[in-house]
Design a binder for these strands. Structure first.
Lengths: 207, 207, 207, 207
DNA sequence: TATGAATGAGGGTTCATTCAT
DNA sequence: GATGAATGAACCCTCATTCAT
């Protein structure tokens, strides 16, 4: 098995001559499949069916399954980074910051989707170095977004706490109370120093 | 063509000796495979090869792949619960408790293994209600172990934090510093009340 | 494949030491399975499940699947011959004879069962000479039973007609009218000669 | 282990040329297998071997074994209907008609083949409603062909008689005498009415 | 004696991938 | 450029049969 010329796993978009939307549609379909059936179910055929394109179209646009997966994860990280950034756009006070984080761990369908994809990425990255850079990029961007409001170390801690809480929330049968979530998150958010809140203003152009 | 149009299957030739304990060995092999190749690689063949038994032996002992997976996860939860319990056997002070938790998030190979299995279980449970009860049992037993030293709510928070940190540690390329880990964990462990530490003494026989 | 010592396909009952009923129960279960799932479904396991005996019990009492099938068919022929004989026990007149035959082609559940088994035997016998003697025995006994009332040639014709009608009746969706059946059968039954009806009296001890 | 934990299937190497007509060849091979090995032997692998195509080719062209069987039976009915029609093309008199029918029950190899297929279809249809319509179509077309020469009720009777005789002929060890067959068939064919023979003239374009 | 354990063949099916069109 | 046909590996699973108990 020669890996059949997949570039560096995330690059190399290849054809794109016309109908450029099709490539994106396939990637989004791949993420849908990933959410619903897991890595095990991520096959050319399932993706093609989901994207409503012929089977050949998937193999045509992507050099192999591994590349399709890598690019799908890349798209996920890209989209998710933007979403995560925007999440804090209206945050002005510490209370608002905490409130957004509490929302974060509550499993709306959209949240659920991205959480599942994130965990799939994490697990896949454990065994595929090519995906590892994506996972790290995602973690870094998350922590950078948090670091607009708390210190770097606190951001890392907070990120870990949120990740664990989200995982627990995913599996919880009954809806978790916001109060419990807030009680967990609030202490992990630093009190604002004399320099106000948020800590750092300005540049948060991720990537 | 033989004497009849009947199914011409000829039976096996060399049945191996009676081998009690084979079931368990298959389950352990299944967990090994799960760690190394993920859910995607968890096939009858890989498991059989890992356990060094014929393919038919795996299908003989387990009614289907789903049952093999479920029982493998069940064995993981059972083993891990005991391990987790024992982790705190020698803990007498708050400092020792924190130290054990810091160890926990540092990725020794054994830790890494159980962490990966735990995350795989979490993800699999999302799509399989039958596994959900196992995942919940695992979470509950973890939190109960922690709750010997901190309150129930704190235990839940601590568990989430640890889970997130372990996942981050799994993916981190360089080794994390113990100090950073301690700085994250320590504040999440309640100060002992007037009733000393640990909170609850005595019986922690997990069943 | 050496046929593993099956006697002459129909003989050789083998153990019968105690619980002699079990062997019969297995054969009857085999016929049940044959009716419901066809030759394709006639497996040791299905038969064992149907007879409610352990799998090993089936392989123990029968030297191989072919022998089980052969003996099951033998039992069918034996039972069916007796049933067919008895069918005409109360027949005294030509009209009664025709009426019994009309009943015969009407698919009561019991009829349906034996018809299916008969056709399965026919088809299986095409490819297995060992079964062919059974099929011939069955045909012969049927025609002999009929020949108590009509001539030998007429019996053969009548038998063929009945067989074809039964097959058609099996597949017919709606219930066939008795009149149509009688209209087909009646002309195929000879008018009684001056020697009365039935033609031959006495010995019909089928063995 | 390669670059990833992904499914490590390597694709095929030497796709053969585009081969229209392969579908049909597979269906014909399936019928051959059905004749020789019965329903029990009708497997993807046997059919593939018979058609001299790779296993994957059979599963590619047919969504499942059931569909392969259904389409094979459909092809049989289609072909056989045409053959049966043509059988009577040169029939002008009642005697010729009877003679053709007598031929019919005599087991030439080609006859044998279609007879076996027909009986297999009958039996399979008993357990598969999807095949039932095919069996009915076949029966109907047979009777319609006969009904060109005799009345509808007589056609049904004649069809049943022929079917039974063919089955008996299939199993008979020695060749049956034509006279016996004629003696059975002739009385079942109506005497031509005043309108001559055949009853209906002209167009017998089946479908 | 009777039965569960064990095994390798083979069952239907899905799949990544290649190639001709 | 884009796609269906084609293929062989591997998938899960069932099976007849043998053997130890």
């Amino acid at each position: 098995m020669t890996h059949s010329g997949a570039r560096d796993r995330t690059g190399g978009r290849r054809p794109r001559r016309h109908d450029p939307g099709r490539r994106i549609r396939i990637l989004d379909a791949a993420l849908d499949v990933l959410v619903e059936r897991g890595m095990t179910g991520m096959t050319h055929r399932h993706v093609a069916a989901r994207a409503d394109v012929p089977l050949g179209s998937v193999t045509y646009h992507f050099a192999g399954l591994a590349e399709l997966q890598a690019q799908a994860f890349a798209r996920f990280v890209e989209l998710q980074t933007a979403v995560f950034e925007r999440l804090f756009d209206d945050v002005g006070t510490r209370e608002e910051f905490v409130e957004v984080l509490v929302d974060l761990v509550h499993a709306s369908p959209a949240r659920q989707r991205s959480a599942v994809l994130g965990f799939e990425l994490h697990l896949a990255a454990l065994r595929d170095p090519g995906l590892r850079v994506l996972a790290e990029a995602w973690t870094r961007s998350s922590q950078e977004a948090l670091a607009r409001f708390v210190g770097a170390e606190a951001a890392a801690r907070l990120d870990a706490l949120l990740e664990g809480m989200i995982m627990h929330a995913l599996l919880a049968t009954g809806p978790r109370s916001r109060e419990a979530a807030r009680a967990a998150i609030d202490p992990a958010v630093e009190r604002p120093g004399p320099d106000g809140f948020p800590r750092t203003q300005g540049e948060h152009h991720v990537r």
